[in-house]
């Protein structure tokens, strides 16, 4: 029984961390219509930023200042936001494809830096030994893991509540207005470019916070943790859960991460050994098919966006025509 609880606590922690990242993406894509193709870059920036500030000293590389956890946490978020600000400034003025491609490129470029700048990031070996927060307070690993789960869930709830308020506030309505019809929003005197940049930076900072929690949990970060597949996983969670709906985003995170891990679990249990060797590609094909199938048959996701319609008008189709 303890084993099952222990595993579920572990699963819940990872899923909650991912859910925070999905919420950040939801602010960008679900509420503002910005396609972030480089989620992994901002996630990695948060993780590396925290590690550099809070990690253990290593004579061979820069950073590792062993600063307190709160400073490391804030530093990670700041680095993610900084990268987002620079990228956003360059690309947000342009048509949406550019943002998708440029952010995808940022992820590739940052991964190259993490992999090659050994003096800064430890290179491909990564960095290890991040002091796990409040570990001294707990006697055994099991209780600590439960406490850490509670900590992550608290942050998840805080982010969720904060975003829900934001979305319902006048500010959130302006963001959606820009997404739906930018020209109309502009004509009402809204500075669409600046608002989009703000949403992009804020969303990326939230994704960065997820990265910080990730490195706090594993105490280890390497370039492998910012592979493009992470971007895909986070996106899959949002699309399946329902873009524009924060509850959907969290649901999607738990569902997809659950499917991702349990498909490996089930294949290992029930597939014959000869097939087990092929489970990797099969798993990818299955997940890819779920995404495509979802977009084909239920593009609004499991929990669709709930918009308080104040006026009837063109909804989804207008979304892109204005941006093209």
């Amino acid at each position: 029984m303890i084993g099952i609880i222990s595993y579920l606590a572990f699963f819940g922690t990872v899923a909650s961390i991912l859910a925070i990242a999905v919420l950040g993406l939801n602010l960008q894509w679900g509420n503002t219509g910005l396609f972030n193709g480089g989620v992994a870059a901002f996630f990695g920036a948060g993780a590396y930023g925290a590690m550099m500030l809070g990690g253990p000293a290593d004579p061979l590389q820069f950073g590792a200042f062993e600063l307190p956890y709160t400073i490391a946490f804030a530093g990670g978020i700041f680095l993610a936001a900084l990268v987002a600000w620079a990228v956003g400034l360059l690309t947000l003025r342009l048509r949406h494809d550019y943002l998708a491609i440029a952010t995808f490129g940022v992820a590739v470029a940052l991964e190259a830096v993490a992999r090659n700048a050994e003096w800064l990031t430890g290179g491909a070996k990564g960095m290890r030994g991040f002091p796990r927060p409040f570990e001294g307070l707990f006697e055994d690993q099991f209780t600590y893991n439960l406490a850490f789960l509670a900590f992550v869930v608290l942050i998840l709830i805080a982010v969720y509540v904060g975003l829900e308020r934001l979305v319902r506030s006048p500010y959130g309505r302006v963001l959606r207005a820009i997404r739906e019809d930018e020209i109309a929003a502009r004509s009402l005197g809204k500075n669409a470019t600046r608002l989009r940049l703000e949403a992009f930076v804020l969303g990326s900072a939230i994704i960065g916070a997820a990265g910080v929690l990730y490195v706090s949990f594993y105490a280890f970060i390497s370039p492998q943790d910012m592979a493009p597949i992470l971007t895909f996983q986070i996106w899959a969670m949002l699309i399946v859960g329902g873009a524009g709906n924060n509850r959907g985003a969290v649901l999607g995170a738990f569902l997809i991460w659950g499917a991702w891990t349990s498909s490996g679990f089930l294949l290992a249990k029930f597939a014959p050994t000869a097939v087990q060797i092929y489970t990797g590609p099969i798993q990818y094909i299955m997940i890819g098919s779920v995404i495509v199938g979802m977009l084909l048959w239920r593009p609004q996701g499991l929990l669709p966006e709930r918009i308080e319609r104040t006026k009837t008008g063109n909804e989804a189709p207008g979304k892109t025509a204005s941006q093209g």
Binding site: S6, G264, Q283
Partner: peptide, 21 residues
């Protein structure tokens, strides 16, 4: 046999499931 997909998240989860479950 569990696939790690050379992804630390996936590998650690697989290991955790095998150890705990």
């Amino acid at each position: 046999l569990r696939d790690t997909q050379v992804d630390a998240k996936v590998g650690v989860d697989a290991a955790k499931a095998m150890v705990d479950l």
